[in-house]
C-alpha cells in the first residue's frame, strides 16, 4: 500500500487532469475512513461524503449478493444536476471517490483521469 503522501500526490495528479475538480478521496470500504483526501472547495465535507459513499458501495454489494450476481463493481456513477460523482473500486477494500463540477467537465474526462491514475492507489 502506498504511503499517505504518495496517495495524496496521486489525488493531486487526478486533480490536475480533471477540469472542474471539486474533491477526491481514497476510502477504506469497511470503515469509511479516508486514507487520503484532496479538495478544492471549502464547503464540500469530504470526510462525511466518503463515509456515506462507503455505505452506498456496501449496499450495492449487498444487492448484488441478494440477486446472485457474481460480477464485481468497477465503478458507480451518480449524476447530479450540477456535479458528477464517481466511485471507482480500486481494490476489494478501497475505493476512489471523485466529485467534479458538471459544467466544467464530462464523464469521459473524469473516467480518463481516474483510469490513468487508479493503479497508483493500490
Amino acid at each position: 500500500m502506498p504511503s499517505e503522501k504518495q496517495l495524496s500526490e496521486t489525488l493531486e495528479k487526478i486533480q490536475n487532469d480533471t477540469s472542474g475538480f471539486i474533491a477526491a478521496s481514497l476510502v477504506d470500504l469497511d470503515s469509511g475512513m479516508t486514507l487520503a483526501v484532496k479538495a478544492s472547495r471549502s464547503d464540500f465535507d469530504l470526510t462525511a461524503a466518503s463515509a456515506y459513499n462507503s455505505e452506498l458501495v456496501k449496499q450495492k454489494l449487498k444487492i448484488m449478493r441478494t440477486l446472485g450476481l457474481t460480477g464485481t463493481i468497477e465503478d458507480m456513477l451518480i449524476t447530479l444536476s450540477d456535479q458528477i460523482h464517481l466511485v471507482k473500486l480500486v481494490s476489494p477494500g478501497t475505493f476512489l471517490y471523485l466529485a467534479v463540477d458538471k459544467k466544467q467537465s464530462n464523464l469521459a474526462i473524469v473516467r480518463n483521469a481516474v483510469n490513468k491514475h487508479a493503479a497508483a492507489l493500490v
Binding site: V37, L46, T47, A48, A51
Partner: peptide, 9 residues
C-alpha cells in the same frame, strides 16, 4: 481533524 475519528460522521 477528520482522519483521527471513526466513525467519521
Amino acid at each position: 481533524p477528520g482522519g483521527m475519528i471513526w466513525p467519521p460522521v
